[in-house]
Design a protein around this nucleic acid. Structure first.
Lengths: 304, 304
DNA sequence: GCCATTAGTTTGTCCAAGACAAAGCGTTGA
DNA sequence: TCAACGCTTTGTCTTGGACAAACTAATGGC
């Protein structure tokens, strides 16, 4: 069955994180992507092209320059990706569990998957579960998805089951009145919720008092919430799909409008390595760093 | 303190949720907002205008039309917001708990709110908790939000806490190999997850074997998932914000492409009352009807 | 009286090409 | 080693026109 209809430019923006303006200017400058047009002249992107755009996005995030990679054939792109990721499939503590979980996911054995997640959580404890199981799993699933080894259904199922597991664990805690008070959320257009839940799962066992607003809170509401709730820290999460520029702008603007004694933490693949351009903001490069950041906060507030 | 610098159009988009295109076309058509320009001709929006835009956005969400409210003075806008009529508060079972929960929400007592949700869940049982507490609460929160009585933060917090509670309850069940096998998800552009969780929470205690893909699964992937997983039922949820036309089209298209023995259930405010135009699809008008639908399915499959 | 069509209006998104600022890169000089 | 400079790349903003999708209002059965 030939899929006659392609994706609109808005859909591609949503799926790749590349702005409409960027997509149009790339077409003009580099000749790619060159979408078909519908009867009224609007762009229709082929699924293959979107796939390739995702590869390109990946390379840009790794530091490649658009002029070099937009317009390069997919095979070469893959080679570049491989070249840059001498990822150690090393024997990390939970890599056996990881592999087993991925296998279950690909077989759609959702019952066993859920059971094994719960079991692994009990075995490792919440924090190590997040750092040593969920974080690597996220990476694996994300990469497998880029390589087309994982279907949409599997990716959705994965997110859903992890979410159930983490939320159940978080909900079981009942910290009260402890410090610091942490407000967790994401900016608008950032709908990935897993990073947020992972952060919360790292913080809650330490006695931090977390209040999560879920995803997509407008900037002004974040400001209002932070001010009204006497929070010590506002924590934001950014996935790799989130436009870096937008993230940095938003964070600086938030830093500007928020009282100085309120800390701002920013984490996730979409913001990692940007500490330089974010004065007054604590960038959390890896999920483990959450604990380091928390320790720093405690050290800085021993007297109070 | 004269604020020389205004907000860029990108910042306003982030803060208000109105797209750059929309902001420019409003300026052209209605003469508002009329931002200053920086030396290179780029728009700089005044803080007051952004505030007014946020008011306008609220009114649009209530159903007002742009032509009527963009260009109207702030005082008049506030009057319109006030004028929005409050609904009746009927005395249903569990309404005492509802009121108490709403009060806690407005006070931002998130700890107590979570505790009371867990407690109420235990008292009522999962199914009655969903039907008699969560469903009315949803309605109340939704209406209060339209009236401006509830801040964005409170609405987000509410969704987040309910989600934690429901997912913890769902995750605690461990049904295996039972029937029917139900696939739950929503169409793309439908990001409301609560309806889906409520349905799952109604079904799981009955021994139904639920697999949820979360929100926003493309139609073709729903079809593939349904076919590959030997499901008995595909359940879709539609919030009131979802365009009816799109829902009906999508459902009929899905019905067309799916094997006849696979049932399709459609529920939520966005689709209720449309049974007539949806042959071959079970429309679930109220959350309680989920159980009736399940009973019907069992009756029709006694022999197998 | 109640739906279903149809026609008319409103409204958001898309397009084009040009312009330019911000960021990256490379060179020079202290 | 690092600061300052110019050159190149790259993403965002601009304008005005166009049009499809959504909404409203009017019309025509049953």
């Amino acid at each position: 069955m030939a899929d006659v209809s392609g994706l609109t430019i808005a859909a591609v923006e949503r799926d790749t994180g590349l702005s409409k303006d960027t997509l149009r200017v790339w077409e003009r400058r580099y000749g790619f992507p060159k979408p078909l047009r519908d009867p009224s002249g609007e762009r229709l992107y082929a699924a293959d092209d979107v796939e390739r755009l995702r590869l390109i996005k990946r390379l840009l995030d790794q530091g490649h320059r658009p002029g070099k990679v937009v317009g390069t054939a997919p095979a070469e792109l893959l080679r570049l990706l491989e070249a840059h990721t001498p990822r150690t499939a090393a024997a990390l503590p939970g890599s056996a569990e990881c592999a087993a979980l991925i296998d279950l996911l690909k077989l759609h054995r959702s019952d066993e998957l859920r059971a094994m997640l719960s079991q692994t959580l009990l075995k490792f404890g919440l924090q190590r579960f997040v750092a040593e199981i969920v974080a690597p799993l996220n990476r694996h699933v994300g990469e497998a998805w880029l390589r087309g080894e994982i279907a949409v259904m599997e990716e959705h199922l994965y997110t859903e089951l992890i979410q159930n597991t983490l939320r159940a664990a978080i909900n079981a805690h009942a910290a009260r009145g402890t410090r610091p008070r942490v407000l967790l959320t994401t900016f608008p257009d950032e709908e990935h919720t897993l990073g947020l839940l992972m952060a919360e799962a790292m913080l809650v066992p330490e006695g931090a008092h977390c209040i999560s607003l879920g995803t997509q809170t407008p900037l002004s509401d974040i400001r209002m919430a932070a001010a009204s709730g006497s929070f010590d820290i506002v924590a934001l999460s950014f996935s790799s799909a989130y436009p870096v520029r937008q993230a940095v702008d938003g964070l600086l603007s938030l830093r500007d409008r928020l009282a100085g004694e309120v800390g701002i933490w920013a984490g996730g693949a979409g913001i990692c390595g940007r500490q330089r351009s974010l004065p007054g903001i604590r960038v959390i490069a890896e999920i483990d760093d959450t604990l380091a950041a928390l320790r720093d906060w405690h050290n800085a507030h021993l007297n109070s």
